[in-house]
């Protein structure tokens, strides 16, 4: 495992070097990536010009939620690039996965090391900017406990969406065509939890509470950070299960992933 980790860092270093080789192109990539998020957030902010609040939340509060999600999703998108279903599915079709199987290294580590999209820094930076902008609009009463918990919330979301990426990649062992369906969950899920979730219709909120427990990743922690009352009367622990939900989702996906590899070894591509 140690060996695999060393190789992982090497692969990472090699990729960073080649991605930074053309500085200007890289710079524009980062700018392009952050401007999409900027525009997305700007259009959200415009809504507040007319309605002042969204489900009773002010722009600052929504920006808090939105920034935290974009930041986490961006980190995930960078670290889990190798598992991005649309990339991984392509690799399967090209037979590149066979080449990973031929190397005496842990497979999961190899997929992690196979791609690392540094320009996602644009998305991460923009998410962070929105999150900091929120601090200028509202006064969050930060306590040491809150500050300590914040990275765990990010961690939970990274694990959770990373798990979705891994599950999506695994499905491409069976079929590459369902990538679109999988993207509904990843990107759609990301979009949903970037907004105050009590604004959604009951069935949708229940789906993302009981089936896919994404409501605990961002919305509940935000209630805690912003000292807002829980409209659904969950137990007081609800804001604190985010890292657990993330880890469980990741573990479940990894189990599915290993099952998928065994399937691949019996069917090929």
């Amino acid at each position: 495992m140690n060996h695999a980790l060393t190789i992982y860092w090497r692969l990472l270093g090699v990729q960073l070097r080649s991605q930074l080789q053309y500085r200007l192109a890289f710079f524009f990539d980062v700018v392009a990536m952050s401007s999409t998020i900027f525009l997305e957030f700007a259009s959200l902010a415009l809504v507040f010009q007319r309605f002042e609040t969204l489900g009773g939340w002010t722009l600052g509060e929504v920006a808090f939620l939105y920034g935290l999600e974009e930041l986490s999703f961006g980190i995930m998108d960078m670290v889990f690039s190798g598992f991005d279903p649309s990339y991984f599915g392509q690799e399967i079709r090209r037979g590149s996965f066979d080449q990973l199987l031929l190397r005496p290294l842990n497979l999961t580590m190899q997929v992690f090391g196979s791609k690392f999209v540094l320009r996602r820094l644009g998305k991460i930076g923009m998410g962070l900017a929105v999150f900091l902008y929120a601090q200028t609009l509202i006064t969050v009463t930060w306590t040491p406990a809150k500050l300590l918990y914040l990275p765990f919330v990010v961690f939970g979301m990274v694990c959770f969406f990373g798990g979705l990426f891994i599950a999506g990649a695994t499905i491409t062992f069976w079929t590459v065509e369902s990538i679109e369906v999988m993207n509904i969950f990843t990107y759609g899920g990301g979009y949903l939890i970037a907004h105050p979730m009590h604004i959604y219709q009951t069935w949708l909120r229940r789906l993302f509470t009981y089936v896919v427990p994404a409501i605990f990743l961002n919305y509940y922690p935000a209630l805690y950070f912003l000292n807002k009352p829980d409209p659904f009367n969950f137990p007081a622990i609800a804001p604190f299960v985010a890292p657990l939900v993330g880890i469980l989702a990741l573990l479940a996906s990894l189990a599915f992933w290993h099952f998928g590899i065994r399937f691949y070894q019996s069917t090929g591509n």
Binding site: R94, G95, S96, D98, Q99, L101, L102, R103, P104, L105, N106
Partner: peptide, 16 residues
Amino acid sequence: QAYVARIGAVFGQRTT
């Protein structure tokens, strides 16, 4: 892992 460490393989249409 232990097995592939002892063999070499080249698939003509792909590169390692």
